[in-house]
């Protein structure tokens, strides 16, 4: 009998990257405008936080989120967001259209994992601009933290590896959320709330979780940490990077372990939802 052939996933992904780049280059002006508009949004955002830090030294007493710590946090948010926007956002957005018009048919015919195919086939290269901006902000802020006279930050290779690992975890959690939400459009027929939902979610995820840990913020904190674990996404890598003193504290360790559990859990759940949803696919008329 035939030996099972596996589609070369990495090679296919490279072709996705290549084809998307070719496409973006075809519409040069669109590419440039997208880069500029997303960069200006980032700059405005940064300006806003600079203003806030001209009124206060840190976010809340004893949270450890001073100006540059917070900028590490902010660049972490940007890293994760641009990653998701580059790889998954255009596809999740298109998924809803594929279902409504019945073009998912073609994806289902291909001898390759359907979730892989629809999650990655388009890549938005213009997100690179923001990614580089985030890189500059990150390096500058970490350098500031390392150069400050009192309690300077010492950066180990282990910390960098850990940071990258949790960045990846964050991306997986957000991806899982996004694809689960997109998959619901199979049942709903149409789901246009994707962008809105994304905005709400990232709005909660882009602040240090200490903000929520008092008063009536606690239920929110609980909801967005343990039920829909978006608070973990940025908080864990950013805290490990910017506040290594707290690295050994039980709460940080607990969060770090929980982040791994949340990542695996979200991914498994999203896979389940996606597969279930595909069973209900009806395919629009020809």
């Amino acid at each position: 009998m035939t030996t099972a052939k596996r589609a070369p996933y990495l090679q296919v992904f490279k072709t996705f990257l290549r084809n998307s780049l070719v496409r973006e280059m075809t519409f040069r002006s669109n590419f440039v405008i997208q880069c500029i508009s997303s960069l200006s949004w980032t700059v405005m955002n940064l300006g806003f936080y600079l203003l806030i830090f001209s009124h206060a030294d840190q976010i809340g007493p004893d949270t450890g989120w001073g100006k540059y710590e917070f900028f590490v946090f902010l660049s972490t948010t940007m890293f994760i967001n641009t990653f998701v926007q580059a790889f998954f956002m255009p596809n999740a957005q298109e998924f809803s259209e594929l279902i409504r018009r019945g073009n998912l048919d073609f994806a289902l015919l291909k001898p390759i994992d359907t979730q892989f195919l629809i999650s990655l086939s388009k890549v938005e290269w213009s997100a690179c601009a923001n990614f580089m901006a985030a890189g500059v902000l990150f390096i500058f802020s970490v350098w500031q933290l390392m150069a400050r006279p009192e309690n300077p930050l010492s950066l180990s290779w282990f910390a960098i590896v850990l940071y990258l690992f949790y960045l990846a975890c964050g991306v997986v959690i957000l991806y899982s959320l996004m694809i689960s939400l997109a998959a619901t459009s199979i049942w709903l027929g149409r789901n246009q709330s994707l962008y809105n939902f994304w905005f709400y979610i990232t709005n909660f995820a882009r602040y240090p979780m200490e903000i929520y840990q008092q008063g009536w913020g606690l239920p929110l904190w609980f909801l967005f940490t343990f039920i829909v674990p978006v608070l973990v996404v940025v908080n864990v890598p950013a805290r490990l990077m910017a506040q290594p003193v707290a690295e050994t504290s039980p709460s940080t360790t607990f969060l770090a372990v929980f982040a791994v559990v949340a990542t695996v859990g979200s991914f498994v759940a999203s896979r389940w939802i996606f597969t279930r949803a595909l069973l209900s696919y009806r395919s629009a008329s020809s």
Binding site: K5, R6, A7, P8, Q11, V12, T15, F16, R18, N19, V22, R23, T26, F27, K110, P111, I112, L117
Partner: peptide
């Protein structure tokens, strides 16, 4: 839609091994 058919063919070659 926006690419030459050739590029889609190459993708098919990879997907279908």
């Amino acid at each position: 839609w926006d690419l030459p058919a050739q590029e889609s063919f190459r993708l098919h070659q990879q997907i279908y091994c």
